[in-house]
Amino acid sequence: MKIVVVLFLFFILASLASALYYLVKDKGQGTRTVRSLTFRIGLSMFLFALLMIGTYLGFIPLQ
């Protein structure tokens, strides 16, 4: 489960970096920045739901 969380965090940071790249490259005129940030929000929400379900089902033990 830890590997999955780390991978999701890596993809979230990569999406954030690509949004910054598109923002600088397109000078705020394109839609690629918005799509990249929307994808990042979707990944973050999915990761949050995955952590909540993992905790509920016992994959992630509470201490």
Rank of each mutant, 00 (worst) to 15 (best):
K27C: 10
I41N: 01
S36I: 07
F46W: 07
G54N: 02
L23S: 09
T33F: 15
D26Q: 15
Q29F: 13
A49F: 04
Q29K: 14
T55W: 02
Y56E: 06
S36G: 00
F59G: 06
L51T: 12
T55Y: 04
G58T: 04
S44H: 00
L23D: 05
F48E: 03
L37H: 00
T33E: 05
V24E: 03
V34Q: 09
M45N: 07
T33K: 02
A49S: 09
L43M: 12
G42F: 09
F48G: 15
F46Y: 10
G54S: 11
F46C: 09
L57F: 09
P61L: 02
I53G: 00
L23G: 10
T38I: 13
L50P: 00
I41M: 13
R35N: 15
G30W: 05
L43A: 08
G42P: 01
D26P: 13
L51K: 02
L62F: 08
F59W: 14
F48M: 07
S44D: 00
R40L: 15
L50Q: 01
Y56N: 03
I60V: 14
L47I: 07
G54V: 05
I41Y: 01
F48V: 08
L23M: 12
K27T: 11
R32I: 14
P61W: 01
G28A: 05
L62S: 08
K27Y: 09
K25Y: 13
A49Y: 01
F46T: 04
T31G: 13
S36H: 14
L50D: 02
L62P: 08
P61G: 00
T38R: 14
L43W: 00
L43P: 09
L50R: 00
I53H: 01
G54W: 03
Y56W: 13
G28L: 12
R32E: 06
R40K: 11
L47Q: 04
D26L: 08
G42C: 13
L51V: 12
I53T: 08
Y56Q: 10
M45A: 14
L50Y: 02
F59P: 02
F59A: 07
K27P: 01
G28T: 06
